[in-house]
Simulated assay, not measured.
Amino acid sequence: MIGYVTIGVSDMGRAKQFYADLLADLGAKVLMDMERIAFIGKSMGTPMLAVCTPYDQQPNHPGNGNMVAINPGSKEMVDKLYHKAIELGATCDGEPGQRIPDRFYGAYIRDPDGNKVAFFHFG
């Protein structure tokens, strides 16, 4: 149902590199780069993450309450992506851990532009 989610960034080169490196273990890469916007994912037919500089040419601002949530398939991959994000320059917004016993495991980061990203696993 979701085609892609777009987040605003201040530095396209940095954002493309950050997300391509971060999501490479999930099989994602930059699929289409149109200078102002780039689509990162496994294929154009599956959900993607798009990074872009704002169309109105004003500074990007992370939304309050907005978040991109990525399900990498296991608790181990949640941990791996969280630590990789931190190594790539993200900041912690909630270390990996069980949030709801036996139901929800998650970790939260802020990318270099301040956008909030969650890595999660149900079960």
Rank of each mutant, 00 (worst) to 15 (best):
G3A: 12
V5Q: 12
I7W: 07
D11W: 06
F18P: 03
L26W: 02
L26R: 04
L26N: 06
G27E: 10
A28T: 07
A28M: 14
A28C: 15
M34W: 08
M34A: 06
R36I: 14
R36A: 14
A38G: 07
F39T: 02
I40K: 05
G41S: 13
S43R: 02
M44Q: 15
T46W: 05
P47C: 03
M48F: 08
L49P: 04
A50H: 09
V51D: 04
T53A: 10
Q58L: 15
P59T: 05
M67A: 15
I70E: 06
I70P: 05
G73K: 04
S74G: 13
K75I: 05
M77K: 15
L81W: 10
L81E: 08
Y82A: 02
H83M: 00
H83L: 04
A85K: 05
I86W: 01
L88A: 02
G94K: 03
G94T: 01
I100L: 13
P101G: 12
R103W: 05
F104P: 04
Y105P: 04
G106K: 05
A107Q: 00
Y108W: 10
Y108C: 01
I109C: 02
R110W: 00
D111W: 02
N115Y: 06
K116W: 00
A118Y: 05
F119T: 03
F120V: 11
G123D: 11
